[in-house]
């Protein structure tokens, strides 16, 4: 394993985060805080408890998951797309570094940023709503697993994209709507039975549900299914990434 190469990519990517602190950390934290203020404190106080959890506390896991998914995808996609865009990818592709090491560097850095951001939002949420964490180890595990999984997705998008528009399509047109409709703001038990069935086709339901279980011990779907689905996504994205490097798709002629 070429640790110096992995370290170089990781540090380079992380330094971009610190350089763009306002955009990388402050903006998503402020956006999420606004959700807490509006849905948690203002509207939430007028809402019924869900499964014995106040509405403000109920949306905490979903909102963290929403930010986590968005940031994982956008951090990782930008991380690999930008060297392609400015031409410096030649350096990575000509370095004595294996594909696994490249992925560890880029995906690792993107996932780290997302986890840090998720923890900041978790702490910030405490300023607005009371919540509990019944299973802190599971909560952290879900956080890390989801960040890694969706950083893989972002990495794939970054390689696939040949313009900034494509870079935004999947996060904005797919990830965000599915997360909103995946139980971030409601329990799927609140939906008519037909729509409950339809919602179960939404992969985000399993992520949000599993993460919420770690907080309150209740979930829309069984924790084992949530975990299985998350691992299934991870395996799929790893397989696609492996194929990309094996074929040199959009990286090598």
């Amino acid at each position: 394993m070429n640790y110096y190469s992995i370290r170089a990519i990781y540090i380079f990517e992380m330094s971009r985060t610190w350089r763009t602190l306002l955009q990388s950390i402050a903006t998503p934290v402020i956006s999420t805080c606004l959700y807490f203020v509006v849905f948690g404190s203002a509207i939430g106080s007028q809402m019924m408890d869900i499964d014995g959890v106040s509405y403000g506390a109920f949306i905490v896991p979903g909102l963290i998951m929403l930010t986590l998914l968005m940031q994982s995808v956008s951090n990782a996609s930008f991380g690999i797309y930008f060297p392609k865009f400015n031409g410096t990818i030649y350096e990575v592709m000509s370095a004595p570094i294996s594909y696994i090491e490249i992925v560890i560097g880029y995906v690792g850095a993107a996932a780290t940023k997302s986890v840090v951001l998720g923890l900041i939002i978790l702490v910030t949420a405490r300023l607005f709503v009371d919540y509990q964490i019944d299973h802190p180890v599971w909560m952290f595990s879900f956080l890390v697993l989801t960040a890694i999984t969706f950083s893989f997705l972002g990495f794939i998008i970054g390689i696939w994209a040949d313009g900034f528009e494509k870079l935004q399509i999947v996060p904005m047109m797919v990830v965000t709507p599915l997360t909103f409709l995946g139980g971030t703001f409601y329990s799927i038990d609140m939906l008519p039975s037909f729509w409950q069935g339809v919602t179960l086709l939404n992969p985000m339901v399993y992520l949000v549900s599993g993460f919420r279980w770690a907080f309150y011990g209740t979930s829309d779907v069984h924790i084992a299914i949530s975990l299985g689905m998350t691992l299934g996504f991870l395996a799929s994205f790893v397989a696609i990434t492996w194929w990309i490097f094996k074929t040199g798709y959009k990286l090598k002629s």
Partner: peptide, 16 residues
Amino acid sequence: FEHVITTVRFSRGLFG
């Protein structure tokens, strides 16, 4: 957007 010395350090590390 990177500083000259940062990019040179990166290159050295990248090559192990």
